[in-house]
Design a protein around this nucleic acid. Structure first.
Lengths: 138, 138
DNA sequence: CAGTATCCGGCCGGATACTG
DNA sequence: CAGTATCCGGCCGGATACTG
């Protein structure tokens, strides 16, 4: 169930009577997607990775449109998943710092990969949409 | 606005008075995430990439839990984004084939990368969750 | 076969107000 | 500062039934 050692794509792999694919994930990346790519987790992880350890308000300011409630929720989830570390300093006023964990940092190359794909292909997607809509209009 | 040529992480990059981060994406991968990583797009893309060109029913059978309505919706979106190609054969009964496009195929290495991360780190996430919950219970 | 049409529930995320 | 408490709307996805 690790099975990923080389891209191995193209039609029909060497499947010898493969079971009718499990319930949820016909693809092995289903679980990761749930963990890493939700509405706000990606921006949070990215920001933490880019700007290093920072406080709640700093995250709030960098990720401009997020609300405190949602930011808290996502941070808790990320902490639970072990992707970030939360440090509480019992002072007055309270001070809390968030930083990316080693586990979370391991996602950096992946994010870079994603950013690469985006920078070279995003306008092709844009173009495709335009073409599709134009064709549909006729 | 391409800016990604090397991982460049770690605290404080070379930001000289960076603007207060744009509205939505504090991170450049926001848009890609919306396009590629939604509930069903990933399994669909993966299946298409793995098993090659196939018909609607085949996809339905491989991605066991998806409903026809949702499958159609996602396929349309993916087609509009130029990640897959839909071919309609006007026969009786009708025959439609879906295949991944060149643009979509470009995601294969990324998916492999993701699968790699998953296979080596998913149980660490699992472990982290367990620890977190155990600590919370006390 | 390859969908479309309806209806419907749940959940996520946003808005607003308040607190140790 | 770093959140929590409430309320609420929208949308996505699921269930079910039907069609060129």
């Amino acid at each position: 169930m690790h099975m990923a050692e080389g891209t191995r794509m193209a039609g029909k792999p060497t499947w010898t009577a493969r079971t009718p694919t499990n319930p949820e994930d016909a693809c092995p990346i289903g679980p990761v997607v749930d963990i890493v790519f939700s509405r706000w987790t990606t921006p949070i992880l990215w920001t933490l990775n880019e700007y290093g350890r920072q406080r709640f308000v700093e995250l709030e300011r960098r990720i401009t449109t997020i609300t405190p409630k949602v930011l808290t929720q996502r941070l808790r989830q990320l902490e639970r998943d072990g992707l970030i570390v939360r440090t509480y300093h019992p002072e007055v006023p309270p001070r809390v710092e968030y930083e990316i964990s080693d586990l979370g940092r391991g996602l950096a190359p992946l994010f870079a990969h994603l950013a690469d794909w985006a920078s070279t292909n995003l306008d092709r997607v844009e173009q495709a949409r335009h073409d599709y809509d134009a064709k549909a209009a006729r």
